[in-house]
């Protein structure tokens, strides 16, 4: 095997493995999505196509409830669009790194671009260069298979399961994101961003906004940006007089 191939294989393996903790964290949600579809009278094929094609957590769950209650099509699709709109932010953030890739690579990475893959790709170096693309795609694929597996377990176990949402299993997801976000707070502007996002996301959630996540994130990003500009300005103001002396 050539060195290049070996390196690619190694990176693919590493990406797959690095995603495993996030795969574990969504076990309850995946099982819930699968079992809910069966409990709401979806056929096995329909329940399978949800994780296979839609491949989304919250959107899948809410759409299942909406379809089961005979909600008008436009409402279902609009709701799915609103919940998924946070992906626009991920696409924008990763645009410069991914736009030059060949079509098939771009399409495949886009297909597995979840919250979890984005969470794993926040470093400046992430997804830069051929090997890191392989790593990222493999991590995304790992999450895809994990999600599919948990959904299938939910589909099989179906109606035997108790209501999983009340068991507090969603804490594992929060813990995963804490583990990814908290150590990344190394600068004051990032801290500002996190605090604003935390407060606003809770307020908007209590207000039942469907766009809660996106609006809270956008405002928090603005605050982080302004904090950074102020920091730069302040630093310049402090250092400039000294340089004159």
């Amino acid at each position: 095997m050539s060195l290049k191939k070996q390196a690619t294989k190694k990176m693919a393996f590493k990406g797959f493995v690095d995603m495993l903790p996030l795969n574990l964290a969504v076990i309850p949600w995946g099982i819930l999505c699968g079992s809910l579809a069966i409990q709401r009278d979806f056929s096995v094929l329909e329940a399978l196509l949800m994780p296979l094609l839609v491949f989304a957590g919250a959107a899948q769950l809410i759409a299942t409830e909406l379809i089961a209650s005979n909600t008008p099509l436009a409402t279902i699709l609009f709701t799915v669009f609103i919940i998924s709109s946070r992906h626009f932010l991920y696409g924008l953030a990763l645009r410069d790194k991914l736009k030059a890739l060949p079509l098939t690579k771009r399409l495949s990475i886009a297909f597995v671009l979840t919250d979890e893959l984005f969470a794993l790709s926040t470093k400046k170096k992430s997804l830069r260069g051929r090997l890191r693309i392989t790593y990222g795609f493999s991590a995304g694929l790992s999450f895809y298979f994990g999600w599919l597996l948990w959904n299938i377990i939910g589909i099989i176990a179906g109606s035997f399961l108790p209501d999983l949402t009340t068991m507090g299993l969603d804490f594992a997801i929060a813990a995963t994101f804490i583990a990814l976000v908290i150590p990344s707070i190394t600068t004051l502007p990032t801290l500002v961003t996190v605090i604003v996002a935390a407060i606003l996301s809770v307020i908007f959630k209590l207000w039942h906004w469907q766009l809660d996540l996106v609006v809270a994130s956008l405002i928090a990003m603005c605050c982080g940006y302004v904090a950074l500009q102020l920091q730069i300005k302040f630093k310049n103001a402090v250092t400039k007089p000294r340089s004159i002396l």
């Binding site: 953030a93 984005f118 976000v181 996002a197 928090a220």
Partner: peptide, 9 residues
């Protein structure tokens, strides 16, 4: 700032 913002939210 999108990553810390969205993941926190």
């Amino acid at each position: 700032f999108s990553a810390p913002a969205v993941l926190t939210a």
